[in-house]
Amino acid sequence: MSQFLQVFLSGLSTGSIYALAAIGFTLLWQAAQTVNFAQGEFVMLPAFFVLIGIHWLHLPLWLSLIFGLIVAVIVLGLLFKKVVVEPMLPNGGLPLIIATMALSILLKEGTKQFYGAEAQPFPNIFPQTTMTLDGAVISVQDIMNLVVSLGVVVGLTLFLNRTRTGRCMQATAQNPEVAEILGVNVKRMVLYTFLVNAALAALASFLISPIYLAKFSNGETLGLVAFIAAIVGGFNQIRGALVGGLLIGVLDNLTATYVTTEYRAALPLVMLIVIILWRPQGLLGTSEGRQV
């Protein structure tokens, strides 16, 4: 029982980080109808911005985190939107998808060239205290991972439903033409979505890097997981992505503990295929319309 609890809780903690990346993924899907194949690199990179803040600019940790967040929002939000996505919009969906694949190579190789191929240690953000719950060891980090991602989902949902800007963003996602006619600044709303995505990716990066470390190739695994989580949970729902992320984190651990370690990575993939066949809109997705 304590073993089950242990791997279950650890899975929730890791899964909540996957969820953050997956939420950003769904946001971009809805706002720009693109599958961002560089999402994993978007999570890999902000950790390096923080490391630059610490080691090059000699900022304290908290300031480095803020620095990392701001740079991430500018580079992965604003610049990504203006330099990569916007010029490509008239070309349709495929070129943009291809461009994000190329972007993922560019970010990965760029990080390697400018910061080195070796994994880098990343400072702990939360105290290393642990507590024992019925034989299972939980760290403050685990709890905070969950708290932060739940907070993000609640906050984001409130923002989208309760604020004017949020509702404009939803309108834009659902029907840009009508939104435009109704006086919504569609371009700006899409830009907001990109900024939110960058911020979420940065958050995921800060939470995962103390354990996962900072390495140029980290995005390969993270991107794939975020992708699967988003599809499994439902591409058009924020809480779908949350559920998808948690589910994958937990199932991965349960499979490894009780079924097979060799095929631990296979279960989410099989799940993805089954869900596409059985409920293409995802577990929590709705078949029509998009939320954001």
């Binding site: 070309n91 560019l106 190789e109 060239q113």
Partner: peptide, 20 residues
């Protein structure tokens, strides 16, 4: 040297912008 992949990736992005 090590910049080949970066050059290639940038070229692909530029190509997708100007000539999809």
């Amino acid at each position: 040297e090590g910049y080949y992949l970066m050059i290639y990736a940038s070229a692909v992005i530029v190509l997708m912008v100007f000539c999809p």
